[in-house]
């Protein structure tokens, strides 16, 4: 690969810089880690998260997904119906069914008709479901890190969450990763 940098030069430099010895091999551009903050539990956003996470994994990027607030609902095992320790947590789980296969659209949900049509179209056009993409992403080494604070707030235990999740972390870990140069993506 040849890289040519063109800069407008008004006046030639008084002192020409000494010619640099050609590097033995071209330096590989540093690849950033990818950090997705999965905040929303909506079907459409969950889908985007899973597509990008699995693709990042396939491209050999180190990809981490911080799962927080409504996003954490996605990572509760599909078969869990009521989660939580107290009545309010249980009622919330009842009102909003957790699990990756039970996501709703944020708009045009129409009592489940929207997601049903989306699912039907996706199967017709052979688009992988969020659940399938999650499995692929995990197999490709994408790390899903649950937010400890959200787990506490919903009363979720590690056992409520799908297999293969990373250790729960906090916001400081996320900010730390950004400071270290991870490319952040808030979905």
């Amino acid at each position: 690969m040849t890289l040519t940098l063109e800069r407008p030069v008004e006046a030639p430099p008084v002192e020409a810089p000494a010619p640099q010895p050609a590097p033995a091999h071209e330096a590989e551009p540093a690849l950033h880690d990818i950090l997705i903050i999965d905040y929303s539990g909506d079907l459409e956003r969950t889908w985007a998260t899973m597509i990008l996470a699995s693709t990042a994994g396939a491209m050999g990027a180190k990809c981490r997904v911080f799962v927080t607030f409504w996003g954490l609902q996605v990572f509760v095992k599909d078969e869990r119906r009521i989660t939580g320790q107290n009545w309010m947590q249980k009622l919330l789980a009842f009102m909003q069914r957790p699990g990756i296969s039970h996501r709703k659209l944020s708009k045009m949900n129409f009592l489940g008709m929207g997601p049903w049509m989306m699912g039907k179209l996706a199967r017709q056009y052979k688009v992988s479901s969020p659940k399938e993409l999650l499995e692929v992403a995990q197999a490709l080494g994408v790390e899903f890190m649950p937010c400890q604070m959200t787990m506490d707030m919903y009363g979720l235990t590690r056992d409520d969450l799908v297999e293969g999740m990373a250790e729960p972390v906090g916001a400081a870990t996320v900010i730390g990763l950004m400071q270290e140069g991870s490319s952040p993506l808030f979905i």
């Binding site: 597509i51 699995s54 693709t55 396939a58 056009y125 052979k126 688009v127 992988s128 993409l133 692929v136 490709l140």
Partner: peptide
Amino acid sequence: RGAACPGPLLEAK
């Protein structure tokens, strides 16, 4: 064939 993005890439990988 028939699979949509990112299916073919994941298959290739």
